[in-house]
Nucleic acid binder design. Sequence first.
DNA 1: ATGACGGTAAATGGATACAGATATACGGGC
DNA 2: GCCCGTATATCTGTATCCATTTACCGTCAT
Lengths: 236, 236
Amino acid sequence: MTELNNSINELKNVAQFIAHKLEEMILTGELAPGQHLIQTDIATQFGVSRLPVRDALKILEKRELAVTQPRRGVIVRPLNLQEVSDLYELRRLLESHAFTRSVRNLTEQDIADVEAILQRQESFSMGQFIQILDLDEQFHIKLCSRCENEEIKSSLVKIWSRIRVLRSLERDWDDWNKNSVKSHRGILAAIRAQDYKKARQLLEEGIDRAENKITASVKAVIALSAQSDLTKSAHN
Amino acid sequence: MTELNNSINELKNVAQFIAHKLEEMILTGELAPGQHLIQTDIATQFGVSRLPVRDALKILEKRELAVTQPRRGVIVRPLNLQEVSDLYELRRLLESHAFTRSVRNLTEQDIADVEAILQRQESFSMGQFIQILDLDEQFHIKLCSRCENEEIKSSLVKIWSRIRVLRSLERDWDDWNKNSVKSHRGILAAIRAQDYKKARQLLEEGIDRAENKITASVKAVIALSAQSDLTKSAHN
DNA sequence: ATGACGGTAAATGGATACAGATATACGGGC
DNA sequence: GCCCGTATATCTGTATCCATTTACCGTCAT
């Protein structure tokens, strides 16, 4: 409860605090895709009434991390291979466009910020995978920050919140982070050399690689859960 | 109350019913941009408690038709010239992409459906401007329906719900609808001729014309409201 | 053993009343 | 004329209750 009161000042209200916590629990796998999010349980778990929990679930739904089934409740958004490719096609389209618009407007300070993000990314290792996710996201968002289109930027932020969930399924974080850093270094170098065409190409290649990796992870997890469903029904 | 009970079966719950009604009121101008949406007032107005109203406001917020100001309430999304161009840049990017992906997959039935939409559009006139908006939207959505990307399609639907609000500010509906039909006829003809490149070009030109028209309308309304603000403060 | 049926429990959707927090506005004092 | 405190309007959250729907589970018949 003290932790709640402390953190509540950073966020605006209880609902946002709970939504944030639930998102963390989704990222850590504590809440699995498809799992029911039961209002009363969450309410007692956090020691609040059901109302802010309902609000929190609506926040998750707005961010498309959860799905509401009317009169049946809310579940964590289930995994879906089609969704991965659809989401990545959308991301490629938007980010590539935004990057092109933004890259010429990046200031010295922006470049320095990106460099700082990249250096922090280099210093992290496996254990802190949520931070790794955040830094990767920050890198890409920062590069698009000067695209001068708030709609596209907010669309990208929404897409990233979903990509984070998919990425959290990744196993080999060390390898993943190494490749990410390498790709980011290349992009940053191309930007510094003002070779924007090459930068964009590297960016798109990175997005494609990420899609392939995530597709593999999601496939593996779906296969695994299908298998456990089989064993479960075999036990019955 | 009887109307409520009748319509409630079509929608899933009271909140969605109220959200739908509020959206209509925004489109008809009954609720003006920037206007406060006060929970208790709306609750008494519809004869329900505050809870479903809160839910309804969150639905509007999710669709970006309303903006929540923490601890101050919810307002109808204010008009903003920048937003028009940002939204249209996003629409152009997504719709153009989706159209290209979709157009080759359109079936005979799809084309027939589009033709039917277009014919209905031709038969309407000024009075029924909400229907005109719907038909215009249906035309564009249908053309993109076979893009095989649910994410892009749902993004486009969201964009359209906002564009509808902006378009509702238009004055000269008769002129507007005539131009729209003409543009749509050209696109459909190009599709039938399998000249997809031309179809796409016509589509993009239509989007640009729409942006210009809406920009003018929004400018006019903003100027008008600024003027009335002046007279109001002069009276104080 | 398996499928259909029915009853009970659980969960959501909604209503009501009340307590608290907070931003704006108003008005009085300096 | 400006600053500051109070008042008001409004949202935010708690606590309880009820209705309706859905899910679960055990029984029964095939």
